[in-house]
Design a protein around this nucleic acid. Structure first.
Lengths: 238, 238
DNA sequence: CGGAACAGTTGATCTAAATCAAACCCCGCG
DNA sequence: CGCGGGGTTTGATTTAGATCAACTGTTCCG
C-alpha cells in the first residue's frame, strides 16, 4: 500500500506544472515527506480554523474553496481540479486560511508539507521561480476578481464567466460551454444568488445570445455576449 | 546627481523588509540596475496599458493603486507608502497590471527591473523567500478583500476599516483613528460611494460609537464597532 | 478679497439584486 | 408506478446602496 501511494504521489507531483523542471531527485525527496489524502464527495479537506499542513495538489477529482459567512451563504472562491493546487499562500506563511476546502466529488490529493517546500525552494531555484509564478498568478486573478466584484454588474460577471468557459464546437464553427457544476454553486462562485443567476440566464436566452439546456450552454452570439449589459433590452447592435 | 540617486536608492532598498537579509553586495548589484522615479501629486507612475518595468518601492510619499471603470468611477485597491512596494506580481510575470498607479502626494520611488529581481532570486535564497512571502501576503489580503466584498455589507466594511485604523490614545486609554486620505477616496477604497460613506459615518456617530471631526475619528465603543451592523438600531448591548 | 474648484453633507428617488415563497422538474429508488 | 429530494425556476416584495440634485463648507490662488 505504502509503495502504491508513493507511486501515485510521485506521478501527481511530476505532472502538475508546479514541479516542472525540478530534478527527479528533488521530486523524490519531496515525495518522501508528502502524503496522500483520499476524500469522498463532500468531505472537508482540512479542519476549518486550523493551519494548513502544507500545499494541496489535486491528483484527481475536484476541490472547492469557499468562504463561509455565519448563516449559510457561501461564496465559492474557486474550484481546483486535477493537476492544480491550492493552499500555497496560507501554508507557506503558516496562517489559517479564510476559506474552507472540501471535495466536490470523490478525490485524491497529495499534501506537501510546507517544510519540504521551503527546503526545495532553497535547493532548486527553478522551483522557487515556479512557486513565485504560482503566487503571482493568484494575485493577478484575485485582483481581477475584486475588479469584477466592485466594478461589474452580476450580468457582466456571468457573461464573462460564460465567455471564459466557451469552447469552439467541432465542425459547425459555433461555440458552447459546459457548466462545470450545479447552477447553485456557479451562482455562489459569481457572488450572486441562484435566483439571480436563473433570471440572468433567462434574459440572455431571451436576448438570443445563448441557449441553455441542463448544463449545456450554446453560445449563439459570442461578441454580443462579451459586451452585454442586462438593461440594454433587445440591443439590435452597437 | 547620479551618486545622490545611488545613495537614496540604496537607502530605500536597505530599509524596506523586502531586501532585509540580502547581502550588501546583492543590494548594491540590484541598485546598480535600478533607478529613481520622482513624481508630483497626481502624476501617473506607469503608462497605463503598458507592462510594468519592474517592482516599485516607495521611498517617500504615497502611491495609489486604483481600478478604473469606463466612465469615471474608480475602485482604490490600496495605497502604498514609504517602505512598501507594489507591482511585484505583474512585473515578475511580465503582464499588464489591471490597476493604474499614481502619486497621491509628491513622492519618490525606486524602480527595480524584473530582470534584476530574478537574478537576485537565483543568487540569494533569502531574497527568494522574501519575494515569496510578499506575494503570499498579497494573496491573503486579496482573499480577505473578496470575502469582505461578497459577504459583508458596506457598514461592516467601514466598521472593520476603522477598527484596523484605530490606535490607542496616549493617556486616557481611549482609541482614535486618523483618516489617511479624503473621504471620497476612502469610499472608493471600501467599494462604496462617498454619499454612502457619509451616511454610514453619520449612523455610527448617532449610535454613539464614534465621533467624527474632519479627518479625526474618536472611537467611543471599540467592541460595539467591531460587531456593528447598520440596521441594528440603537442596539443597547449584546 | 473674491471666486473657482474641490470635498462633504443631506434629501428624494430609483434600481439591481436579495429575500420570501411557492411551484416545478428531473431522476433515482422502493 | 408513485413519491421524495435535490436542484431550478418563477413571481411578489423588500432593501441596501446608487443616483440625481441641491446646498455647504474648505482650500487655494490670482
Amino acid at each position: 500500500m505504502r509503495s502504491k501511494d508513493q507511486q501515485f504521489l510521485q506521478g501527481v507531483l511530476a505532472n502538475g506544472r508546479l514541479f516542472a523542471g525540478v530534478s527527479p531527485g528533488g521530486i523524490a525527496t519531496v515525495a518522501r515527506h508528502a502524503w496522500v489524502l483520499a476524500a469522498r464527495r463532500g468531505d472537508a479537506l482540512s479542519r476549518s480554523g486550523e493551519r494548513l499542513p502544507g500545499l494541496f495538489v489535486v491528483g484527481y477529482g475536484v476541490a472547492k474553496l469557499a468562504l463561509r459567512a455565519p448563516g449559510s451563504q457561501e461564496r465559492v472562491l474557486r474550484t481546483v481540479s486535477a493537476g492544480q493546487s491550492f493552499g500555497a499562500a496560507a501554508a507557506l506563511l503558516g496562517r489559517v486560511p479564510r476559506y474552507e476546502a472540501s471535495a466536490l466529488v470523490d478525490a485524491k490529493l497529495v499534501v506537501v508539507p510546507s517544510e519540504a517546500m521551503l527546503v526545495l525552494m532553497d535547493r532548486e531555484p527553478r522551483f522557487c521561480r515556479s512557486v513565485m509564478r504560482l503566487l503571482a498568478e493568484r494575485v493577478l486573478d484575485l485582483v481581477a476578481e475584486v475588479e469584477a466584484l466592485s466594478l461589474h454588474s452580476s450580468g457582466r460577471r456571468l457573461a464573462s464567466y460564460l465567455g471564459a468557459l466557451a469552447a469552439p464546437v467541432a465542425g459547425n464553427g459555433g461555440w458552447a460551454a459546459q457548466l462545470p457544476m450545479s447552477k447553485t454553486l456557479i451562482a455562489a462562485r459569481l457572488g450572486m444568488k441562484k435566483e439571480t443567476l436563473s433570471r440572468l440566464l433567462g434574459k440572455l436566452a431571451a436576448a438570443g445570445l445563448i441557449e441553455v439546456s441542463r448544463r449545456h450552454v450554446t453560445i449563439l452570439d459570442r461578441d454580443a455576449l462579451a459586451g452585454w449589459s442586462p438593461s440594454s433590452g433587445p440591443a439590435h447592435s452597437a
